[in-house]
Design a protein around this nucleic acid. Structure first.
Lengths: 189, 189
DNA sequence: GAAAAACGTTGTCATATGACAACGTTTAAA
DNA sequence: TTTAAACGTTGTCATATGACAACGTTTTTC
């Protein structure tokens, strides 16, 4: 049986089947419960995750104790606390499972060994970084200086899955507003 | 005489002198006036810039006609409208000279030819992307949900050069607030 | 050097949003 | 199944900030 990650790499890279099989040896499957912490603030990120099933959430906690969600990742995507993963400095982010999830994990060391071995994997990693950058920029421009009601409409248009699948509270933290504000905005629509 | 860009690449990469000389052949020096447009919203970004002197500003214009500044780049750094440069879709950003500037420009095509030729240059380019990502993330988390006065303090601490070198109006656009609000906040400090 | 434009500050006013609380509903835990 | 916790909604109230205008200063342009 061919794994989901195998298919994913097949579709998104130029890697050949035997190369992919070699790469997959370094990944380990894990299952998580709801709200399980995978990467913690203050710790250095050493893992890279692929999502077979479920939803992971990347967030930090600001001075006031409020959660600010940076990103939700769904099935068939790679994610980790990228800033710490890159810099190897203590992370400001948490990465947790939003739902019970099935993941494939690889250690940072193994991953970078493989990117050295397989140029196509390195190219794919660079695309992951590029995509993360583009998404970040979109959020900065999209949300800075935009009013709440427009942020809500933006998400409805661009990431509608979030509104059905994710709790209001979490969506609010993604939009940079409180849950009560989001609730009132939804009532206005 | 050894150029500034030569020194910069020497210090920030493993490239050898003769490799750098070869790379520099594809860069062309240009001088700009104040507020000169280098890359325009709606157009596809085809250039990559190195700043010898001066300051470039990356911004977009939102629905209400307000400018939102994403980034200020100073001497000895590379910059372009990265999202469009990567995706080759029409840019949402403008890139303009904030001050009269002296730049070195290379075409996207030449640049990517060179990153194929020189692995060390490609590695440096990947670092540029990574840095841009890290900076973006910092801004998202730093600014979403933060009050104006705290944003101001944040910039005073982390990017104090901006406050001395950049106009109030432009700083305000970077912080996602109006100039009058910034002015009042400064009075409060 | 003179005229015009852009800029920075301050005031007033309107409003979007946060803080907090109450309460019913849904979800999780035992 | 029962109990407790978390969640979503709605109300009130306080406040930070935007919109707009006035005005003096600084900068640009010709």
């Amino acid at each position: 049986m061919i794994s989901q990650l195998h298919n994913f790499l097949k579709q998104n890279t130029q890697l050949k089947d035997d190369e992919i099989r070699d790469i997959l040896k370094s990944f380990k499957p894990i299952k998580t419960k709801r709200n399980q912490v995978l990467e913690k603030e203050g710790e250095i990120c050493k893992h890279f995750y692929f999502i077979n099933k479920g939803c992971l959430r990347l967030y930090e906690i600001d001075k006031k104790g409020n959660e600010i969600t940076g990103y939700f990742a769904l099935e068939d995507s790679f994610i980790t606390t990228l800033t710490s993963f890159i810099t190897q400095k203590p992370s400001r982010d948490f990465l947790t499972s939003y739902e019970p999830a099935e993941l494939e994990v690889i250690s940072r060391q193994d991953f970078f060994n493989l990117t050295e071995k397989y140029k196509d994997l390195k190219m794919y990693y660079n695309k992951v970084i590029e995509f993360a950058l583009i998404h970040s920029q979109m959020r900065i421009y999209g949300f800075l200086g935009m009013e709440g009601i427009d942020k809500l409409k933006w998400v409805m248009e661009h990431e509608p899955k979030l509104l059905t699948r994710i709790s209001s509270k979490a969506v609010a933290s993604y939009l940079g507003m409180t849950n009560s504000t989001l609730s009132k905005l939804k009532a206005k629509l």
